[in-house]
Amino acid sequence: MKQVSGIVRPKGWARTLQRVLLFAVLGLFCVYYLVPLFVMVSTSLKSLAEIREGTLLAPPRAINTEAWAKAWRSACVGVRCNGLQPYFVNSVLMVVPAVLISTFLGALNGYALTKWRVRGADTIFALMLFGAFIPFQVILLPMARTLGELGLAGTIPGLVFVHTIYGLAFTTLFFRNFFIGVSNGIVQAAQIDGAGFFGIFFRIVLPMSIPAIVVTVIWQFTQIWNDFLFGIAFTVGESNPVTVALNNVVNTSTGVKEYNVDMAAAIIAALPTLAVYVVAGAWFVRGLSAGAVKG
């Protein structure tokens, strides 16, 4: 034993050094990613006077939640000074139906395209998939006009509609890829037992796609909550989602610049998706890599 450890030792030293270096680099990057979060939280808990005296990196001397209260209830978004609260509610009212509808339709579509012989299924899928990649600038103008003609311009239902339509490409893609891995035998057996298209979908296929549903819901939730382009293009004032309101709070140029309120507002806008990420991180990552391997 003694001899062996003697022989191995130099290598052991090199290895220890390697590990130390490895953790130093990994730790450094942890700091890099965490510093903005720290700055955001600590600035939001400082008073304006403390912000002007100290530096970004100094932790707050005392916990001061005034900025939070102001960001939530009374910060000015343009001319209205009700804080982020009403816009947060707008985002909730937008994201819930949009996520549920786009996920449900994507599941149904993916199921029909893979488990039933729809003629031209592959072509239909390829054509729909393209919708996930277009720069949305190319549909902004006609969509604004269409929403106007439907009487949905500047409304939350209008945003739900837009997010559902343009979310479909991704939800279909995700469920199609999931269903391809599901054996056709189950569907055929159920058919022989006399089950129909919807019977098989609701009683057999949906219950077994819980993982796909979770990933899709998380992905759609993150995308739609964080959306800014549709929000700023298709809503005005009172119907803005929270991301647009946040931008308006930060870039309102009247009066004293309140960095603590800006940071509290940013955290409020980020909280729902951050919470989802912390609770369901593994699923989130699966959505990300699914979003990557399109096709």
Binding site: F29, C30, Y33, V35, P36, L37, V39, M40, T43, L56, T222, W225, N226, D227, F228, T243, V244, L246, N247, V250, Y259, D262, M263, A265, A266, A269, A270, T273, L274, V276, Y277, V278, G281, F284, V285, L288
Partner: peptide, 19 residues
């Protein structure tokens, strides 16, 4: 390493604007 991906770009922009 991955949590910034859960943030909106608007939030990221706001924070970095301050930093």
């Amino acid at each position: 390493y991955l949590y910034p991906m859960a943030l909106s770009f608007v939030v990221t922009g706001t924070v970095w604007k301050w930093i």
